[in-house]
């Protein structure tokens, strides 16, 4: 029969970091959500390549605010990374502070994005470009808001003392989702704001 000795090792119990099921689950979710944005951008390029309309309707997009907003979102991602790093180093207060900053920056992004929407002279129904612009940025904004809810929950759980350096898988999992939302924005930004210049 099998020798039991190789099966005699000390094993972690439960959701430990990247050994947890949730880590693998979020990676699978990211693959499928990444595909969703891939198809959205495919629809954009497919329609843009064949259009005979003014594209975008207002002429070349103004880059300043969206670029600042991109920087804000990336900074927020960095804060989440720092927050996770601090838990690992048993600095829970720094971790909470970084998470609060991450959420604040995320909320800034949403506010700026909403004012961007407000400044448009067209809406979803006025032209094909409008349909694409608001659907793509709307999909992304939904993801940002869901991500913010996730970060808020992580903050509450950290404040309740649920996590320390031994168990904090939720922070790793929620964090990578936020990084994903931010990386997707880079593709959306490049498509909607840089591509018309090319």
């Amino acid at each position: 029969m099998t020798d039991a000795s190789p099966f005699n090792q000390l094993l972690p119990v439960g959701s430990k970091g990247k050994l947890s099921g949730g880590w693998w689950g979020i990676l699978a979710l990211i693959v499928t959500e990444g595909s969703l944005f891939g198809y959205l951008l495919f629809a954009y390029f497919y329609l843009a390549a064949q259009t005979e309309q003014q594209w975008p309707p207002e002429g070349l997009p103004v880059l300043l605010m969206p670029a600042v907003n991109t920087a804000i979102l990336l900074a927020s991602s960095a804060c989440v990374w720092i927050s996770e790093h601090c838990i690992r180093r048993r600095q829970i207060y720094w971790s909470i502070a970084a998470m609060i900053l991450a959420i604040a920056l995320g909320i800034c992004f949403v506010m700026i994005q909403l004012t961007e929407w407000d400044r448009k002279t067209y809406d979803m129904t006025s032209s094909l470009y409008g349909s694409l612009y608001f659907t793509i940025t709307g999909f992304h904004l939904c993801h940002v808001i869901i991500g913010l809810v996730v970060l808020l929950l992580l903050l509450i759980w950290m404040a309740l003392g649920y996590f320390d350096d031994r168990r904090y898988a939720a922070v790793t999992i929620g964090g990578v989702y936020w990084h994903f939302v931010d990386v997707v924005w880079l593709f959306v930004f490049t498509t909607l704001y840089i591509f018309p210049y090319l």
């Binding site: 329609l47 979803m124 129904t125 349909s131």
Partner: peptide, 15 residues
């Protein structure tokens, strides 16, 4: 009332 597949407004059925 969007126009993704709306031929009259530049949408494409082949999409």
């Amino acid at each position: 009332g969007t126009h993704f597949f709306d031929v009259a407004n530049g949408g494409k059925p082949l999409l």
